[in-house]
């Protein structure tokens, strides 16, 4: 069952990925005060975007799963959650790489950082809930957790921002004056990463389907 979409997105990625690298490292100018370390920003923003996008998909697929009870919807949610975890991990790793030279600290409890970390925790909890036996129960519970966790994300963000607005801000806004060329590179990163997400999602979805099929065949044999 070869899907034409997977091949298409694979081909597009083979072109877009090198173009994106070119745009980031050669086309976009080096930032005047931050220097070369600013380049991490293009990867950082794009993976954070995918982390959020993947979570929205988990939420939607979870609602649909509760209504329709199709294993395919659960596979979609799980695949999205796994890929989202990978990208949020990238966000959490690239952030400090930039923050240490610029903010002079690896970590700060800024609302965005706090929310990203909590989002990461919820992703891990979601995946932990999905793994293991008693499949039917777990899929249902994971769907419920996916919905509740999604509702929780804005609450985490607002509570953290509110808290920071009461206390003085240690680090003021990032002050990102982007030149036109930088904006092009950022835009290209967002598109490339989105496509990468779509591609990985199809791959993971397929491998989960195959895994299910193997289990089915195994149980038929025994």
């Amino acid at each position: 069952m070869e899907s034409p979409w997977r091949k298409l997105s694979c081909l597009a990625l083979m072109i877009l990925l090198p173009v994106n690298i070119f745009l980031i490292f050669i086309y976009a100018p080096v930032e005047k005060t931050m220097g070369i370390v600013q380049k991490v920003f293009y990867f950082h923003i794009a993976s954070a975007w995918i982390g959020l996008l993947a979570f929205v998909l988990v939420f939607i697929a979870s609602i649909l799963y509760l209504r329709k009870r199709e294993a395919a919807l659960n596979r979609l949610a799980l695949a999205s959650a796994e890929i989202g975890t990978v990208f949020i991990t990238c966000t959490l790793l690239t952030g400090p790489l930039w923050a240490y030279p610029i903010w002079n600290t690896w970590w700060t409890w800024d609302p965005r950082l706090t929310t990203t970390l909590v989002l990461w925790f919820m992703y891990l909890a979601y995946i932990a809930l999905q793994s293991g036996g008693e499949t039917e129960n777990r899929q249902r519970f994971a769907a419920i957790y996916g919905i509740v966790a999604f509702i929780n994300v804005p609450l985490v963000f607002f509570s953290a921002r509110w808290w920071r607005s009461i206390h003085p801000l240690v680090i003021t806004s990032e002050g990102m004056g982007l030149t036109a060329k930088m904006r092009v590179a950022l835009f290209a990163s967002l598109i490339t990463f989105s496509l990468l997400y779509v591609y990985l999602l199809q791959l993971r979805y397929r491998s989960l389907s195959l895994k299910e099929r193997v289990n089915e065949l195994k149980s038929k044999l025994t």
Binding site: T114, V118, F121, M122, L124, A125, A128, L129, G132, G133, E134, N137, R138, F141, Y145, V148, A149, N152, V156, S159, A160
Partner: peptide
Amino acid sequence: LPAARLLFPILLFPLMV
């Protein structure tokens, strides 16, 4: 989920932030 009792705090704490 008898095998997953330990999950309870892992599920609970992120939601309680």
